[in-house]
Amino acid sequence: MTALSITPIRRPSWLTLPLTIGAVIILFWLVVTVLAPVLSPYDPLEMAGRRLQAPSWAHWLGTDALGRDVLSRTLYGAFHSLPIAVIVVALSVAIGATLGAISGFIGGIIGAAIMRLVDVTLSFPPMLLAMAVAASLGPGLENAAVAMVIVWWPVYARLMRAQVLEVREREHVEAAVASGASDSRVLTKHILPLCWTPVLISATMDLGQVILLAASLSFIGLGATPPTPEWGSMISDGAAQFYSWWVALGPGLAILTIVLGFNFIGDGLHDYFDPKSK
């Protein structure tokens, strides 16, 4: 008897439910970021109707104190949130990973000096330090981004240094050194390629937190300046029009879902790399 063996299509083990939910949410916001001009029913900066209208068929999320359509502003807001967070995290990784790798590989006074700077920076509550820097640089989304990079890079420096210190002790590195490879070759070809994964995973998981921090800075008036449709400052508009609850509803839900998306992904990755807690 010949048995017909059918291999069922298996769901890959890393594709867990939290990871899928997170990916779908983030994909949605990526599409919105790119297509906001097409999807938005109105211009986000122009008056689209009477001031402070409650949600209706013409304005799904109502209008704000200047008669602008809240839905359109919320959709455009994605453009002032996701790309900024990606830039902030990318710059922090670039600076932090470089300095962390130098500190781990070279050590000595330079390495120690870098790590002391890391220690001191991480001694501040992040929001407080970001506020102080953003305040002295002046308002504006770019300045807020600079402030966030200053707060965030040490995280990756510490992580990268720990990775380099660990990988440096492995046998293949010893072999490379013994066969006469130069320092820079050992670092770039034999150590760094093995160090990136945890740094990149932690960077992905941090995107949500950076979005929250950016919105918080804008909420207290240290980030985006009017009339930019940025979620944090839109919620601040909503606080000023407290009884028109819909003004803050759209941007609030936007921040909540996008950060939730990244946290779902983080949770999924955590389950995958630490299966003990499943």
Binding site: I235, W245, G252, I255, L256
Partner: peptide
């Protein structure tokens, strides 16, 4: 738990 670490406190407070 995930909700709590995703929701902006300033918006939750207002709501």
């Amino acid at each position: 738990a995930l909700f709590g670490s995703s929701i902006p406190v300033f918006w939750l407070g207002l709501a």
